[in-house]
Every structure is written in C-alpha cells, then in structure tokens.
Write a protein that binds this DNA or RNA. Sequence first.
DNA 1: CAGCGAAGTGAACGCCGATTCACAATGTCA
DNA 2: TGACATTGTGAATCGGCGTTCACTTCGCTG
Lengths: 202, 202
Amino acid sequence: MAAEKLETEVRQDQITNAALGLIAAKGVSELSMAKLANRVGLVPSAIYRHFKSKDEVLDATIAHISERLMNNVRSARKETSDAVECLHMLLASHVELVRQNRGILHIVFSDSVYSGRPLRKQRMYQAVAAYLNEVAAIIADGQVHGLICRDSDAHTLAVMFLGLIQPAAFLSHMSNGEFDAAEHAENAWKVFSACLTGAQRS
Amino acid sequence: MAAEKLETEVRQDQITNAALGLIAAKGVSELSMAKLANRVGLVPSAIYRHFKSKDEVLDATIAHISERLMNNVRSARKETSDAVECLHMLLASHVELVRQNRGILHIVFSDSVYSGRPLRKQRMYQAVAAYLNEVAAIIADGQVHGLICRDSDAHTLAVMFLGLIQPAAFLSHMSNGEFDAAEHAENAWKVFSACLTGAQRS
DNA sequence: CAGCGAAGTGAACGCCGATTCACAATGTCA
DNA sequence: TGACATTGTGAATCGGCGTTCACTTCGCTG
C-alpha cells in the first residue's frame, strides 16, 4: 500500500495538477480531499503534509493558472510590435489555454471558489484587472502608432477584447465543448479588428 | 411559533424569491434548506411540502429568471422596429436586470449549480442559445433592411453582443459592484454599433 | 549503524446539511 | 359539526467531508 515518498515540492505540483484535472472533469464543487488524494495515489491525511488546508490547495491551483496566463501575455508581446497582430496572437493563445485546461473555466465560472473567501475573490479580480491593463497597454500603444483609432478609450476596448473570449468560453463550457470557441473567436476577431483599425473615418 | 398556513403556489413563489435573495447575498454554495426556510419563516422540513428536493427549488428559481429574461427580449422587440435601436434597448434592460438581481450573476457564474446535473446545465445552455437566436434574428432583420452591414454572420454578431454584457457583468461580479457594468456597456455599445452600421465601406 | 526529521497511514472526530417521518394545527366541504 | 386533505413542526437519521492524531516507514546524515 505505502506510497513512494516524495519531496513536498514535487507533491505540491502533483496535487495542484490533480486538482485542476478533477475540477476539469467534475467541477469545483466535486473536488474533495478524498478524491484528490486518491488521484495522487495518497491517503487523504497525507495531503496535509504538503498543504495546511483545502483552501491552500485551491489557492495554489489558482496561482498556477494565473502564472500561465500572464506568460501568454508576455510571450505575445515579445513576438511582435504590431499592436493589432499582438492582440490577435494573444486571443489565439488565450483560447488555446482555456481549451486545453477546461478546469480553468470551471474555476472562473464558479462561486464556491469565492463565496466566503473575499480575499481570494479580490486576488482573482486583481489578476483579471492586471491582464486587462496589459491588453489596454497594447491597445494604447497601437493608438499612439496610428494602428488603432483613437475614438475610444483603450480600457473600454480592452474589456471588449475580453468580450471576444468570455462568451465563447462560456458557451463552450455550458455546451460541454460543443460550441466551438476558437471558431467564434476567429470570426469575432475579424469584426473587432476592422472596428479597431477601420473606424478612422471620424 | 406556528407559521401561517398558505397555499403551495404562494409558498413556492416565496421560496424561489428567498432563494434568489440568499444567493445574491452569499452565493449559491451558501444556499441551504435551513437558511432558506428561515428566510421564509418556516422550518426546514416544511419546504418539502412545496418542493420535492433542493434541486427542484433551484430549478424553479432558474426557470423564474429565464422567464424574466425572455420578457425583456419580447418587450424590446415590440418597442421599436429599428434593429439597432432595439439592440440598444435590449442591452440596457439586460444590464439593468442583472444589476437589480445580483443573484443571477451568482447562478450564471456558478458551477455547483451544474456539476452533476447535466440536464440542468443543458437546459440553461438552451435558454442562452434561445436568447442568442432572438438577438441574431434582430440582427438579421437589420441586415435585411440595410441598417446593419452584411459582412458578418448574424450569429457571430449575436455572440459578440453578449460579449458587451458578459465581461462587464463578470467584472462587476468579481469586484462586488465596484466595476460599473452599465457605464462600460454604454461605451462599448458606441464602438459596437459603429461597427454594425459603419462597416458598409466594403 | 544509530537517530532524527520528513512523508505516509488509517482510524476517529465533529460538523453540517439534506431528507424523512410521526404528529399537530389548520382550513374546507358535506 | 365532523371528517379529510393540506400545511407546519420538531426530532431523528444518514451520509459526506475536512481535519486531527498517534503511529509507522523511509531516507539521509553524522
């Protein structure tokens, strides 16, 4: 029975990954210490060698996701200096990230994760806000260089950019993947980018 | 102690309203039969006189919301025949509905509501899809009458329309109302409507 | 090789929440 | 008024889940 002994660091990684996997399959509310331990090949109480509580596991899992998301932004920004192109790449990588990690959707579209944990909710909001600020910065950059029209506020456009992804992700989530988020994102991008660049008739 | 005796129909209304209120305040995961009963002025077991289970309560609550949403669509459609104007009104009423019933956000951005209940999830998806079909119909109408350019698929535009609301609602939800959804919707609408009508330069 | 700390085990605890059931109160209709 | 159905009550049940703890096992280090 006895499971192999591994360092806490390794176990923490295994555990957060297992958590994300379980969440992807069944939703956040179906995540229990028992199932989690079972998936890692441990006994429930063993989890407490590596995390103080279930909340800590969730926090770590979320932090893990946030990092990956921000990496996306950074790499897109380094790839090109054309703001419009950059946004297009960011859109694609964002959709892809979500497609490969369905657990992200379950977490974002969850409330059991936040209710009764104002601090976590706040942290998540700040993460999203930080992401939007990055997007707004890219847009503002495009406006300065004349690639994007200046009629609209960069921040409004940033939220609209999120609006290209979120409903698609939501529909994909609700339809269990039947709705093709990538396809919609691509179609919507055509409209939106025309909007960004084309409205220079003022 | 004994609570007044009321007809099941009345109680069912009271109960679903109380549920929506509790959800608005604390989130779906904080909804319990005990709190629910307490809010209505009953004892937990009394709820079972009017609903077979907690799931039934949630189902009824959701159905209640769906109805209101569809009413919004209908009344907006009857108000005007100008497609663009109609969408604008629909946007406003949608934002207002969500603003006044924060519980809706908690339900939509929940997973405890769906996980393990594929039927309910499917029903919710169909409700959203039906809403989008209505929006798409309005847009298609506008395209026929030349008010909206025909470059893009009506359904894509409908999902984008949802994209004007959803991220704003999400941010408002995450920031506990700090983010002003109505304001963003209004700003985003300017961009989007210009997009709809203005792209007729092809 | 002795010992010490880190990692794993399994049983048990405590809590909370959904649901049930026998019983009481109420309202209606003949 | 008397019977029957409906609604409300309170106690009890039942299960699940997070967490704790005393103990064991493993692996490194002096």
